[in-house]
């Protein structure tokens, strides 16, 4: 989907050339996370799985669920709102007063039309995404993923 890849044979040559022995490190199936880190492949089928990756790469950094630090016994977490709440989640929580789940991928009320409009037009501090970043096909996959929990799914199938 993105990011360059050295072919396995090139990697092997590079490994030999730089004295790392003949053993080639295989590239692990890891994908981008805009939260900070990486995610593994989704176990959702086809388009939904692709949409999951688009969501993690481009959306999660502003629209994920609030960050919860792992519990440390006897040490209450004192985190600022900036550390706890990504921008989109914070804004949506303020506007809806808790009426919808704040992580976008937990919502059941989003439509493909709305998702397409947000991605291509942006909203407030959210910029539009260009087709070289999120292609029309990826946008479709993203919509399928974000609408997967609808009872009368419009685009999830």
């Amino acid at each position: 989907m993105n990011g360059g890849r050295l072919s396995p044979s090139l990697l092997a040559i590079a490994a030999l050339a730089f004295g790392y022995g003949a053993e080639t490190r295989a590239e692990k199936a890891l994908y981008e996370s805009s939260i900070g880190g990486v995610v593994g492949a989704s176990n959702l089928p086809g388009k939904l799985g692709q949409g999951y990756l688009v969501y993690n790469k481009w959306c999660a950094g502003c629209h994920a669920a609030p960050y919860e630090p792992p519990p440390h016994p006897g040490e209450p977490a004192m985190l600022s709102s900036v550390s706890r709440l990504p921008l989109g989640t914070n804004i949506i929580a303020q506007r809806t007063l808790g009426a919808v789940p704040t992580a976008l991928d937990q919502r059941i009320d989003l439509t493909s039309e709305a998702i397409g409009s947000f991605v291509r037009n942006g909203l407030n501090a959210m910029p539009p995404f260009r087709k070289t970043e999120i292609s029309d096909g990826e946008l479709e996959a993203l919509s399928a993923y974000l609408t997967r929990n609808h009872s009368g799914s419009k685009s999830g199938e």
């Binding site: 939260i35 950094g61 502003c62 960050y67 900036v82 990504p86 921008l87 914070n90 501090a125």
Partner: peptide
């Protein structure tokens, strides 16, 4: 992308 949080 989380540092955008400060824009809130």
């Amino acid at each position: 992308l989380w540092p955008f949080a400060s824009l809130a």
